[in-house]
Design a protein around this nucleic acid. Structure first.
Lengths: 208, 208
DNA sequence: CACTAGATAGAGCGTTCGTTCTAGAGGGGT
DNA sequence: ACCCCTCTAGAACGAACGCTCTATCTAGTG
């Protein structure tokens, strides 16, 4: 329809749903991310994505000639950036790292509950089950975790923790939140996440 | 072919693959569990299951008239029992709960590595992405986690921990192992699990 | 021998899958 | 005026999906 990807979609009826005013490519990425977060990689069809993004199949393959796998890696990177932003904000808002991690756990719990326990970790949901036959998806997931870990590690380093302690704690912070979020999701109860937050705060404090 | 499900399959050629000598129903459950552990619920087809189990489609629907969802819940229960058994053994083998949890982490890491990073948590892999449209699968997963938690909690209670501390620690032990296993899987590195084991031991010790 | 219930066997149903393909619309450059 | 490139549009393909269906075979019972 148009060439520049911004502020278009007004001439036709494609700008009615969520993501209105965004470029076609961005709408596709967001739809992929949201759908795969809830249904997983195999559970999400490309036609469903194009429908949800209010784009046509032609557009999907125009922007993502690599097909479903490219869509998935891009969706993982999208989820990566989104959570990294939330994590960065939470870590910056509290000087104390233990309090900051507790705050992150509470934020995750609130978001999960608000979605009626549907929106778990987008990276996990999208990449699970693809490890055997899609190395680039697995790699994108690994990089997302590494980025999140880096944010936590830097916070701990800035608070005077030793290099190895900081990195190892960052590992466990991310992994525990990950596991607790999934448990909270299947149990439909935010308690596991709140317990995880308290335990992680206690663990961090034990290293001072 | 025969009525009693034990020691059959010898007259024909069905007893050649893994699970030889088992009843048809049991072979189907094991094949489902193994495949869904690696490929997830949506990524696993019923025809693939019947092929892998060396059973026919008719047999699959004969034993599991509830179809794919019933197969999945049964596979989750199978994985539940298997891990519960390993967990129980590890917890019984060490008097100290912190050491026991560390041993569990090492066992999980060894198994994951031995499978070339393919066999993650069967419960997670099977249930992820089905939460929205398959309540019984979600419930079976929730029950599995609850059972595992119960084993850890009982160990802590037996070691003199308070009731609430024991339950909360059990939550975090299972959740952290869960998250660390997935991270180890995508990173193809057992280090996250070993770090998790050490941190969990430290956390448990901090409650004495 | 006949009868029955349990289990096996697989063709075939309609649907959806991921992907490919051709056709055309829109706007800028010359 | 024309071309050209980007992007949109959706029909069509073969394969695979979950599931239903009928038919057959076996073992046990009378």
């Amino acid at each position: 329809m148009k060439t520049t990807p911004e502020q278009s979609e007004q001439r036709d009826g494609t700008a009615t749903g969520p993501g209105a005013g965004l470029g076609t490519r961005e709408r596709i990425v967001r739809a992929t991310a949201r759908l795969m977060q809830r249904q997983g990689y195999e559970g999400t069809g490309i036609k469903q994505i194009s429908r949800e993004a209010e784009a046509t199949l032609g557009s999907v393959y125009h922007f993502f000639p690599g097909g479903k796998q490219e869509l998935a890696t891009e969706a993982i990177r999208h989820g990566d950036r989104e959570f990294a932003e939330m994590l960065r904000r939470a870590l910056e808002s509290r000087p104390d790292p233990a309090e900051a991690v507790l705050a992150v756990a509470k934020d995750v719990a609130a978001e999960l509950r608000a979605s009626d326990w549907l929106d778990g970790c987008p990276v996990t949901a999208t990449s699970l089950g693809t490890a055997a036959h899609a190395p680039d998806i697995r790699l994108a997931a690994s990089e997302a975790f590494e980025r999140w870990r880096g944010l936590v590690r830097d916070k701990l380093l800035a608070c005077g923790f030793g290099a190895q302690d900081a990195l190892e704690l960052a590992h466990t912070v991310i992994n525990t939140l990950e596991g607790a979020e999934f448990t909270a999701q299947v149990a439909r109860d935010e308690e596991p996440l709140l317990i995880a937050g308290r335990h992680l705060a206690r663990l961090i404090d034990s290293y001072r």
